[in-house]
Design a protein around this nucleic acid. Structure first.
Lengths: 234, 234
DNA sequence: TAGTGTTACATTGTCGACAGTCGATTGTTG
DNA sequence: CAACAATCGACTGTCGACAATGTAACACTA
């Protein structure tokens, strides 16, 4: 499922990126943002013709977009029946975080084993930024940096398939995050957690870092599940 | 990417499933088999119009089929440029087996932790079948049972996301397997390996089983990589 | 009233045609 | 002859229209 779209080192830094991407991908991006921001709740139907006319395009690119989203695991399609935003059950969320822990732990061990844990400057910079944001109390920004931190960690493992799987995982994590409202009080704690995890990795203690990370993720999971008011089943 | 299709407890148990699937999915199945059997080697271009006329259908379902295959990780699509059968580099194969080991180990630990390792009768039956096939020397059948054994193991973990990821993994493993010719001499050894892994799980020794499995997979990987004549890069 | 045909409707699946994009080839110019 | 522009061809991307499918509501029968 490689659909990556890295920075693309073109030589022209500031030149507002003319969207040369196929229409279908732009549509996918747009609908994805809607889902990930919670504008489209679980179970919401995605009717092709409605989306098409709403966006002023034909059904063909909309169909492709929905296919891409189903590839991302954000959407469920039943033949001849339609496409809906995927609902997440309590079980799904628990499973998601288990898998997430598994993959991040693997990434950490791989980084350390390859001896690359000395060179994690950008991660440190992201921790700094997290500290700053934690004080400002901008929870939305915090989520973004949080996501970027973990993505960087995965990418540092330099494992294509892992990165590819992470795409799916991160997407669903973000969808889950959209369901809850983090409290400002948590922000500082979260920043500290990441700092400690990073430091443990740099120290070369892969297993220790994996444990810290597991605790950190489990904490987030508990927060989500606590505010789980008998939600939808999938 | 949930594509599960459980037993569906309708009231009418035995009523053999009419193939009501959309054309696009049937096309995807067909092309997938071609790739997995090696009829379409890595790098082979999949031209929509050619496939369409060759199958006697329009381009639309073919396009959808190619999307599905790209979802399976069997195919690479570059916008406006076309779709080709994915080539696997040495690095890819190594990474694939790492990820595979990671997931199967997770499955084993989960099964044991949930205390379900006492009830693995179907796996034992598959071991029996493997023994029988090993004597007959039918390598093609051996691969099939092998795949089914590992799939059963994953499914026993009862973890939706894991199962979903496994779909991708198994697909690529099978593609790799299509590249090599197993020797008959290995067959008995392979059957014995599986038997031992299963017994270790049943005994409740998750870590031991995971180690055995890692060795088994690593062995297969080495066999593949050994017969690697400076193959294609991806 | 329980169960079974029937019909209408909303939505997806498929089709053939046209427009857009990219790489390669050819032609042009210094 | 090298570097660049125009052209060509093959292919994918998009479009609007039609066909196939599934659901729900309704009428019908026993």
């Amino acid at each position: 499922m490689p659909q990556s779209e890295p920075p693309q080192p073109t030589g022209h830094p500031p030149l507002g990126e003319i969207s040369n991407l196929p229409l279908s991908e732009r549509i996918a991006d747009q609908v994805r943002e809607m889902i990930l921001n919670g504008d489209l709740g679980p179970g919401a139907p995605l009717v092709e013709i409605a989306l098409a006319s709403s966006l002023g395009v034909s059904r063909a690119p909309v169909r492709e977009a929905l296919r891409i989203l189903s590839l991302d695991g954000l959407v469920e399609t039943i033949p001849y029946r339609g496409t809906t935003v995927r609902g997440l059950s309590r079980r799904d969320i628990e499973g998601l975080h288990e898998i997430r822990t598994l993959h991040e732990g693997f990434a950490i061990r791989r980084i350390v084993r390859a001896g690359r844990h000395g060179d994690l400057g950008d991660l440190a910079a992201q921790c700094d930024e997290m500290d700053r944001i934690a004080q400002s109390g901008d929870l939305r920004a915090l989520n973004l940096v949080d996501e970027r931190f973990h993505r960087s960690l995965i990418e540092r493992a330099e494992h294509d398939l892992l990165t590819s799987f992470w795409r799916t995982i991160a997407m669903q994590v973000r969808q889950v995050m959209a369901m809850r409202n983090r409290r400002i009080a948590d922000a500082a704690l979260i920043a500290a957690n990441h700092r400690r995890i990073l430091e443990t990795i740099v120290a070369g203690d892969a297993d220790g870092a994996a444990l810290l990370l597991e605790a950190h993720v489990a904490d987030g999971t508990d927060t989500v599940l606590a505010s789980w008011a008998e939600g939808d089943a999938s």
